[in-house]
């Protein structure tokens, strides 16, 4: 059997292989190079994109940080501005002037340059009626006050004036004149 089969195969005509021409090796290599180049480009773009993304993210956090700094500085500026407002308010200035024993002179005197004439009668600023009063005007925004006035007063030898500090702006004599008006 086996011999017969072998002999049978040997007599069968050989089947023809369907052949065709392959593309030239050079062209295939060129295509592969293009694909590799394309892949590298894509990878480069991806890497670039990643870098840009990282940089952008960093910039966002940097921006957030700078904005936080700006908020801090704005808060600082506001705190200082409100301190200046408070210290320069008339209430604080009046209190400070009073503590320093300052007196508003009720007798202003002018020197007219053109003819060198003195206008007014010079008098020492001793009239207690012209003394700066303690502050009577409310100010809820007065959060900051000039400090250490007492030491300044002491060092300038002005503490002797403390006795008159409590004078108010308006003072009246004990006598009240009858009214001629109606």
């Amino acid at each position: 059997m086996s011999t017969a089969r072998l002999s049978q195969r040997s007599v069968q005509p050989q089947q023809r292989v369907n052949l065709r021409a392959l593309p030239a090796m050079g062209a295939a290599r060129a295509n592969r190079s293009a694909m590799v180049f394309l892949a590298i480009c894509v990878a480069a773009i991806a890497v670039l994109n990643l870098c840009i993304h990282i940089m952008t993210s960093n910039a966002v956090y940097e921006l957030a940080d700078l904005q936080a700094q700006k908020r801090e500085l704005t808060t600082n500026a506001q705190i200082l501005s409100e301190q200046v407002d408070s210290l320069s308010s008339q209430q604080n200035l009046a209190d400070s002037a009073q503590k320093l024993g300052m007196i508003a002179n009720a007798n202003p005197v002018f020197l007219r340059i053109s003819d060198q004439t003195v206008l007014g009668q010079p008098k020492a600023a001793l009239d207690t009626s012209g003394r700066v009063a303690s502050n009577l005007i409310p100010n809820a925004a007065l959060t900051e006050r000039t400090g250490d006035i007492s030491s300044m007063v002491a060092s300038s030898g002005a503490s002797a004036t403390a006795a008159v500090v409590a004078e108010t702006v308006v003072s009246y004599g004990g006598q009240i004149a009858a009214s001629p008006t109606r």
Partner: peptide, 28 residues
């Protein structure tokens, strides 16, 4: 004080301060 004596002194002070603030020389 039931008459204008009560405000004559305050008027004087405010007028004085006004003249001083705006540097008005005394009358000649």
């Amino acid at each position: 004080i039931s008459n204008s004596f009560g405000v004559a002194g305050p008027f004087k002070k405010i007028m004085q301060q006004t003249l001083r603030t705006y540097r008005v020389p005394p009358s000649t």
